[in-house]
Design a binder for these strands. Structure first.
Lengths: 136, 136
DNA sequence: ACTACATTTAACGTGTTGGTTAAGTGATTG
DNA sequence: CAATCACTTAACCAACACGTTAAATGTAGT
C-alpha cells in the first residue's frame, strides 16, 4: 500500500479485484466472513485480511453479533476517491462549459519552464515528501 | 499491483501519492521527466519508473521530441475508474431519486442466505477467480 | 466443562514495489 | 567525433502484499 494517507489506502484497497468483488457483494447486503469467502477462490484467512485492508481504508465497518462478524460497506471514503478523480473530469468529459474548456486550453498552452504565468491549478498538488513518511 | 486488469492497474497507479502528484502536475501542462522530478524528493530513475507505471495504467502517454520526453495525461482510464466508483454513489449521495433509495433499502434488507429474492445488483460482480490469473 | 463453529493470528514462502547508485543509450552541441 | 544532456536500465535492498496451513481465540450449544 505504498502511501499511508487515507486516499492512498482507499485506492490501494480498490486496486485488488478480490476486494472489489467483496465490495460488490456488500453493496447488496451485509455479510459474514464465511459468506464472503464462499464464492471466492481463496481461503478464509485470506478473505479476513482483505477485510482488514478494506476496514483500514474505511471502506467497510464491522460489528460482532454473537459468533458472527458482519461487514458493512461504508460510504465516506468512496466519495473522497470519487471527488479526487472528479477533479480530472475535464480530461474526458466533452460536455464542458465554455469557460472550463478555455481554462484547460490556457493551462495546456503554458510555457513549461515558467509557472508564474499560470493561474491556480484545478487539481490540488499533494506533498509526496510528507506523504512518503512512514506513520505506522 | 495485485490485479493485472485495467481497473486494477489504474487504482494501483492512483494509490501512490507521488504518482498522484505527477498527475496533478500533468493536469496543468505536459512535462519532461526532469521537470517532473524537480519538485519531488526522489531521484530521476524513481520518477522514470513511476511514469512507467502510469503509462502501463494508460493514465499518461509519452512522446519523444528531440532528447526530451514529454508526458501527457490521458483521460480514458480515469473515466473508467470514475464510472466504477460511481456505481456506489447511492451509498454516500443523499440526493437520490426516490426509486434509487427504495432499491437500496430493499437490497439492504434482503436475507443474507437467500439470494434469489434479490433483484439484480447494481454494481456488477467481478470474477476474482479469473482476475487473479497472471497474464504478463 | 466439552465440543463445535466462526474467525483471527502466527509462521512461512514468494513475488512485487519503491527507493537507491552506477552504467548504458540516444540525441544535441561544440 | 567527443562531450554533454536527458533519460532508461541494471543490480541491489528493505519492506510489503498476498497466498498458504496450522494454531489460537472467542462465542454458543449440550
Amino acid at each position: 500500500m505504498s502511501g499511508s494517507d487515507q486516499l492512498s489506502a482507499v485506492f490501494s484497497a480498490l486496486a485488488d479485484p478480490t476486494r472489489r468483488a467483496i465490495l460488490a457483494e456488500l453493496a447488496d447486503r451485509d455479510a459474514t466472513v464465511t459468506e464472503l469467502t464462499a464464492p471466492l477462490p481463496i481461503s478464509m484467512p485470506a478473505v479476513s485480511r482483505h477485510l482488514k485492508a478494506l476496514e483500514r481504508a474505511g471502506l467497510i465497518s464491522r460489528t460482532r453479533s454473537g459468533k458472527l462478524r458482519m461487514s458493512r460497506i461504508e460510504a465516506a471514503p468512496l466519495r473522497e476517491a470519487a471527488d479526487w478523480i472528479e477533479r480530472y473530469r475535464r480530461f474526458w468529459d466533452t460536455s464542458l462549459t465554455r469557460l472550463d474548456a478555455h481554462l484547460a486550453a490556457v493551462q495546456a498552452a503554458g510555457r513549461p519552464t515558467d509557472r508564474t504565468t499560470h493561474g491556480p491549478a484545478i487539481p490540488d498538488r499533494e506533498s509526496p515528501t510528507k506523504a512518503h513518511d512512514k506513520e505506522n
